[in-house]
């Protein structure tokens, strides 16, 4: 049993934390790559900025440091790392009674560091260190949640939010790199390596495909790998699992429940073939996946959070 509002907050903590981690990683890869002033460095910056949905990405890519700084610390931008973590922490404060002290402390500490008056200076003095530490702290947060929270409904909502966000973020990144709008395919070795880094996938990829950097393999790995935790397929399998374990409310007539949508999404990825995906155009497939992710999100809301009261009143 859990309050609808609490489930909502936990779900969003999961989403915001995942978003913050992804943004940190994109910024880090962008800054590292652009240390070399090469053509592919600018391309990498453009990919990273397009993947976060920045419409002026192409312009900002010329000044990657400024772009990264605002992506991480700009509080006016509701989508920055600092804003996302602020929102995650504000949600955590609202459900402080539902998360363990260990979990809370981790998140609170990250938030305090992001809001420290010296944060901008720390970033300037060593942006890679700063981002690396933030990512590591977010891993500690996830570890604390895993190791100290009961793996019940609340924890599942937290993870549900995280995996749904991750599926959408990786999906958006793949759309930028392999979608129909791209005029020239990415073939540059450095750019392909950076793409894997943005998905935190370089080392796991090497173990499966060796150092053979092929766009087709990269798409296959990030989209369809069964075991890699940041592949879209892996995420959808977890989404289905968590939804199946959250106790089901009374079924509303004629409306597809979130678990049915999640099952269909998982099946779509589980039985997909990379050759067919590419033959039909990656955009078509990715578009369907992202639409279905959005559908799961809406249906989670309808089923658990903003359900109509008339359906639930005692007879």
């Amino acid at each position: 049993m859990m309050l609808a509002r609490v489930a909502d907050s936990l779900y969003w903590i999961g989403r915001y934390v995942e978003r913050a981690e992804h943004l940190c990683r994109l910024s880090d890869v962008m800054l590292t790559a652009t240390l070399d002033r090469t053509e592919s460095a600018t391309q990498i910056a453009r990919i990273a900025l397009a993947a976060v949905g920045d419409p002026e990405g192409a312009v900002k890519a010329r000044n990657p440091y400024e772009a990264a700084l605002s992506l991480v610390l700009d509080r006016q931008d509701g989508g920055s790392v600092a804003s996302s973590l602020g929102l995650a922490r504000e949600n955590a404060r609202q459900v402080r009674d539902q998360i363990t002290t260990e979990t809370w402390e981790r998140l609170n500490l990250i938030h305090l560091r992001m809001n420290d008056p010296h944060a901008a200076r720390a970033f300037a003095e060593g942006s890679q260190d700063f981002l690396h530490d933030t990512i590591a702290d977010l891993h500690l947060f996830k570890g604390a949640a895993d190791a100290t929270m009961s793996h019940g409904e609340g924890w599942r909502f937290l993870l549900l939010g995280g995996y749904l966000e991750r599926a959408q973020l990786i999906g958006a990144l793949l759309e930028v790199c392999f979608g129909d709008k791209r005029r020239r395919p990415i073939t540059d070795h450095a750019a392909l390596t950076s793409l894997l880094r943005m998905g935190c996938a370089l080392e796991p990829y090497l173990r499966v495909y060796t150092a053979d950097m092929q766009p087709r393999y990269i798409l296959e790995f990030l989209l369809l790998d069964e075991d890699f935790p940041r592949s879209v397929r892996f995420c959808t399998a977890r989404i289905e699992e968590h939804l199946a374990s959250i106790s089901r409310p009374v079924e509303a007539h004629g409306v597809a429940g979130p678990d049915r949508l999640a099952g269909r999404l998982r099946a779509r990825l589980q039985y997909a073939d990379i050759g067919e995906v590419q033959a039909g155009g990656a955009s078509a497939f990715l578009g369907a996946v992202l639409d279905e992710c959005a559908g799961v999100h809406r249906s989670v809301y309808e089923a658990f959070v903003s359900y109509p009261l008339e359906q639930r009143l005692p007879a």
Binding site: M1, R5, P249, L309, R312, L313
Partner: peptide
């Protein structure tokens, strides 16, 4: 009642 994920309690 309170609004929970599984309905009113």
């Amino acid at each position: 009642y309170m609004r929970t994920t599984t309905g009113l309690r």
